[in-house]
Amino acid sequence: MTDAEFLLWVRGPAFNIALFIMLAGIVVRFMEILLMGRKTNLAEARGSEMAGGLNTIWRRTLPDADTFRRSGFTIIAGNVFHIGLFVVIFLFVPHILVFERLFGVSWAGLPSNIVDATTVVTIVALLAVLVHRVKDPVLRMLSNFSDYLAWLVTILPLITGWLAFNRVGLSGSTLIGLHILSVELLMVLFPFTKLSHAFTLVLARWYNGAIAGYKGVQS
């Protein structure tokens, strides 16, 4: 397979397969949760499930002061790489062109050098998170193969993207091909690893807030 054939394959059939698996996987995971159902609460309500649920969906993004004091590193590093991922994925002009081709909508991007710097910061934050996971006794105990796999498929597109943008090492088309391939690996594993929290978190937060809201408690 030549460089050009490889690029055509990853941009064409491979991408479509990855997109299908990701979208079907998301649907499957949502169904797996929602079809479990839950019993009607027969206790007399003191507050609103909906208000509590919606409140917790956004409120849980902001930790309270004491939690921040206790888990500062996790919160800062976590926020840095999540915001970094958002900027890199959604505000890089070539990525916006891909979204436009796929969904027909586009939006304004950031200058490439800013995205480039954000990529480096995000990679550093992810490396810090990995070191923390290996060194911290709680995280080391909780971690399994899937945690490291999820970390790997998250950082790979950042590294390959940065290399492709800065034309380091291999030819431009090989680098861009590898970058797209690494994104496809992420897409395929996205619904089936803990990365699924990106979409199931809305349900988890809603249920937590709803259970509390029903009792008139702030969650």
Binding site: E32, I33, H197, L203, A204
Partner: peptide
């Protein structure tokens, strides 16, 4: 196991907080 539990277990990222 009900929908809330399935949502919770699907969402844990092993952050340790």
């Amino acid at each position: 196991i009900d929908a809330p539990i399935a949502a919770f277990l699907s969402s844990c990222v092993h952050c340790g907080m």
